[in-house]
Amino acid sequence: MMRVLAVGPSATVQDLGRPGWFDSGVGVSGAADRASLRLANRLVGNPEDAAAIEVLLGGLAIRAEEPHLVAVTGAPAPATVDGVPVGHATALPLDAGQTLRLGFAPCGLRSYVSIRGGVVVEPVLGSRSRDTLAGLGPEPLRPGAPLPIGPAPPTWPPVDFAPVAPLPEVVEVRAIPGPRADRFADPQALFAGSWAVATETDRVGARLHRRSGPPLRRAMDGDLPTEGMALGAVQVPPSGEPVVFLADHPITGGYPVIAVVCDADVDLVAQARPGQPLRFRRAG
């Protein structure tokens, strides 16, 4: 058992989501940066899909009620144990009564805190993830709340530290044009110049503003009939400012999708902060 002492701007429980419910109108959700969640779990010897804590910007504090092994990955929020600085992407033992505290990350957007045994809140439709758009899954963490932890896995983690490349200053993501690129006068404009991440960014999607390059103009008026939306879809509303869909995206929409970000690069978009430059690179 652990106890939540502080949460910062936001902290939610996330695993790798609930696939298989599209026919019921429910999206996958799960960690916005899946690679960081997987790494955090590997560092403490959990299965990669175990539930952990996704922390927006930092500010989380949790106290161990009994000995635990934890790890922090993703955005490099400075971490301390009882005030002593500890490493990032490192397996960290906590004794009963000790407190892990995250400062605010100097770059990136989301940190992940895994605990050996995983967070074992009640699952909904097979997942412990909080879907912020649908309102499914466990409520966001609150100060004073208990955090139940499952039994430790039988195997011990093989490493106690993982070298992690720093997050880029300019985010470059690969994208495949289509399926509705023909709705735009110049679909290649998406790949020209650069964009900036807007403040209207959350787990649903990252809105982009044009920094340099030509605007995105439609070749025909009117919206499309509602159709399915994929993770990483780059949807363009009438404003011409694209939105890259992230973990809690709607599963249908009517605005045209000019391109889809390659799956491996969606995690990079999830870590991009408001104001950060972003460029698209054509992948197909």
Score class of each variant (00 low, 15 high):
residue 90 T to S: 13
residue 267 D to G: 12
residue 10 S to N: 08
residue 242 P to G: 13
residue 171 V to S: 10
residue 284 G to W: 07
residue 225 P to S: 13
residue 267 D to T: 09
residue 208 L to A: 12
residue 16 L to D: 08
residue 145 A to P: 05
residue 31 A to H: 08
residue 211 R to V: 13
residue 157 P to G: 06
residue 246 L to C: 11
residue 144 G to C: 13
residue 281 R to P: 02
residue 52 A to F: 02
residue 54 E to T: 09
residue 186 D to F: 12
residue 208 L to D: 10
residue 36 S to N: 06
residue 210 R to H: 10
residue 100 L to G: 01
residue 107 C to A: 14
residue 32 A to S: 14
residue 31 A to W: 07
residue 148 P to N: 09
residue 181 A to C: 07
residue 40 A to M: 03
residue 173 V to C: 11
residue 209 H to Y: 14
residue 234 V to T: 07
residue 209 H to I: 05
residue 233 A to E: 06
residue 210 R to Y: 11
residue 73 T to R: 00
residue 278 L to F: 12
residue 83 G to R: 04
residue 42 R to G: 02
residue 56 L to Y: 12
residue 107 C to W: 08
residue 254 G to Y: 06
residue 93 P to T: 05
residue 11 A to H: 06
residue 259 A to Q: 08
residue 143 P to K: 12
residue 148 P to M: 07
residue 52 A to R: 04
residue 38 R to E: 14
residue 256 P to S: 13
residue 78 P to A: 03
residue 229 M to K: 04
residue 193 G to N: 11
residue 183 R to P: 02
residue 249 H to C: 05
residue 241 E to N: 14
residue 229 M to E: 00
residue 229 M to Y: 01
residue 200 E to D: 15
residue 166 P to G: 08
residue 268 L to F: 09
residue 195 W to M: 08
residue 134 A to D: 01
residue 33 D to A: 13
residue 131 D to T: 04
residue 42 R to E: 10
residue 52 A to W: 02
residue 208 L to R: 09
residue 223 D to R: 13
residue 25 G to M: 01
residue 118 G to V: 03
residue 208 L to E: 09
residue 129 S to I: 03
residue 221 D to A: 15
residue 245 F to T: 02
residue 25 G to H: 01
residue 43 L to I: 02
residue 145 A to D: 13
residue 171 V to I: 13
residue 211 R to Y: 03
residue 79 A to S: 11
residue 34 R to S: 13
residue 136 L to V: 05
residue 176 I to L: 14
residue 8 G to C: 13
residue 122 E to P: 00
residue 191 F to G: 05
residue 250 P to H: 02
residue 19 P to R: 00
residue 260 V to R: 15
residue 129 S to A: 15
residue 124 V to D: 03
residue 259 A to P: 08
residue 64 A to M: 02
residue 248 D to N: 09
residue 14 Q to V: 10
residue 85 P to G: 02
residue 146 P to W: 12
residue 168 P to N: 12
residue 135 G to M: 05
residue 214 P to G: 13
residue 64 A to F: 00
residue 155 T to D: 15
residue 220 M to I: 09
residue 240 G to Q: 10
residue 3 R to S: 06
residue 108 G to I: 03
residue 264 A to P: 03
residue 202 D to Y: 10
residue 252 T to P: 05
residue 85 P to E: 03
residue 157 P to S: 11
residue 10 S to R: 14
residue 153 P to F: 04
residue 42 R to Y: 04
residue 68 H to P: 00
